[in-house]
Structure formats: C-alpha cells, structure tokens
C-alpha cells in the first residue's frame, strides 16, 4: 500500500478507478469498485450479462456520473471528451445504406466533435490512413461501411479510437458478434497495438476464453463486485463464489475455462440447460 511513496519514481497509473458505486433506482449495479491500469497493460473486464461492465466503462468515459468514488487518469480527474481515451462502443449496428466510407468513419475519431464541415486536408487523410494501416484495414478504406463484415467494422472502430493517440483504450464487447477466428484476430491485433504503442487496454467480454493467452490481468465483475489479478489468482471457484454470493464452479477443460452457474440464480430445471450449454461449449 505504501510502496508507492517509497518508490516515488514509479509513474502514476494510466487509469485509477477509486471506490466507484453506481445505482439505478434501488439497484446497486456497481458496488465500491477499485482498479488500476498501468501503461501497456492488457486487461480483460469479464462478467456475465448485466454485471455492469458497460456501466463501468461509461463511468470511466464520463458518460455516467458515479454515485460515489472517482476516476483518475495519470493522477487527474477524468472528463468526458478526453482525447487520451479511445472508446469502441458495444454493438454498433450499421445500416447497409449508411452513406459513409471506411475512411469517413475513421476520420470522425479525429475531428468528429468539431463544428463545421471538414476542410480538404492532406494531413487529415494521412493520419486516417496511418490508423487504418495500424489495424490492417487499408484494403477496404474506400468501401461503404455498412457493407463490411462485423470483424472489418470492428477494426474500423478500433482505428477510429486510435487516431488521437490515446493512452487508454476501452473496448466494449468487441468480440461478441464475431466468429472464433475473427475474434482471435481482433485479440491479436489489440494486443499487438498495446505493445507497440504502450497503450493500456480494458477489453470487455462475457467469455474470457478468447483472451486467455493475451491478457495480462483480469477484472472479474459479478453482482456489482470486482476482483482483479492474474487469471490464475482470480478465476478460482472460491474467489468467484464470493463475488457472486453463491456457489459457482470453475472448470478447466482442454485449455478452456468455464464458469458454471455463473449467470443469475436459476430455478433448478433451468440450471440444467446451463450445464448443457457449458458442455456443448466444450465440444
């Protein structure tokens, strides 16, 4: 706890979430959450649906004021519109007829918040192309965004988030609509960018398996509570049972991790289907 004051050469963490609580009505969605990310950390934010993962990202982004606690970036309170934070929101569904090319979408990350129409500028497009190159998306730079695949759109959104050279990148369920191969590609891409740019990553997923080799740390969120550490420290039956407040079991099979019973408490007959699902998952 007091190590930092001794080793005062250690830089401030990129992101500090201090005892954040959020309630909607009488429901506590986040209950006293604290976490820290250092530069270059690749952290998976894992938890079942409705655990409050998106809400936590919105607190960090300044889109959701917390009822208690605060969020700091490099020791300073963070504000909405901070160009040092890149964000890829959950489930962007683009209409096939959206009148934008891939370049147009990415350019919004650079100056989408400015008034007026963009003036023709070679520098602007050079920056956009650089971001497109960083996510291997130059091939379809002029394609209509609405007609690209989910994985391709996901890359564009990541490129858009990288344009302002952020120190922290928040990705909300970037893998959820992708097949396993594209999911692994996106994970590899994000992990490479994190290393190359010394960028702290907080990637939200409800399934931790695609992230297992790539993430440095895991934040497991359940019932509004969080546990942070290495995968081996956090993903254990007794740690997660304590978070959930009831018994869940962690099973490791063929290099995959399954948390059984880790959804909302279910009536007995339905919990059988959770087992079924878990088993089909293994196959």
């Amino acid at each position: 706890m007091y190590l930092r004051s001794v080793a005062n050469t250690a830089p401030d963490p990129v992101l500090t979430v201090k005892q954040v609580s959020v309630r909607f009505g009488s429901r506590r969605v986040l209950d006293n959450i604290s976490l820290e990310l250092q530069a270059g950390d690749f952290v998976g934010l894992i938890g079942p649906n409705g655990a409050g993962k998106t809400t936590l990202l919105k607190v960090i982004l300044g889109l959701q004021p917390p009822d208690a606690g605060k969020v700091e970036m490099e020791g300073k309170v963070i504000h909405r519109g901070n160009s040092r934070v890149g964000y890829v929101p959950q489930k962007i569904s683009l209409d096939p007829d959206t009148p934008m090319s891939a370049r147009d979408l990415v350019a919004l990350g650079l100056d989408g918040h400015r008034w007026g129409i963009p003036l023709p500028s070679r520098k602007r497009w050079a920056a956009v192309d650089e971001a497109l190159a960083a996510v291997d998306a130059l091939r379809y730079a002029n394609a209509p965004v609405g007609k690209l695949s989910g994985g391709e759109q996901q890359r564009l959104l990541i490129a858009q988030a990288l344009l302002t050279q952020p120190k922290l990148l928040l990705l909300d369920e970037p893998l959820s609509n992708l097949d396993i191969r594209s999911a692994h590609e996106v994970v590899r891409l994000v992990s490479r960018i994190s290393r190359e740019q010394n960028l702290a990553i907080l990637l939200v997923a409800h399934d931790m398996n695609p992230l297992l080799g790539a993430m440095d740390k895991i934040v497991y969120l359940a019932e509004g509570r969080a546990a942070m550490g290495s995968v081996d420290e956090v993903v254990q039956s007794h740690v997660l049972s304590q978070l959930y407040g009831y018994d869940v079991e962690v099973i490791r099979v063929q290099g995959r991790i399954l948390v059984v019973g880790g959804e909302a408490p279910l009536p007995v007959n339905q919990s059988i289907s959770v087992w079924d699902e878990a088993l089909t998952h293994v196959e």
């Binding site: 519109g81 890829v88 929101p89 683009l94 918040h113």
Partner: peptide, 10 residues
C-alpha cells in the same frame, strides 16, 4: 453513427 461514441468524444 453512434450517440455514446460521439458523447464520449465530447
């Protein structure tokens, strides 16, 4: 394109 994203960017 996306309200949350736009708001996050200010």
């Amino acid at each position: 394109l996306n309200v949350d994203l736009a708001r996050a960017k200010g």
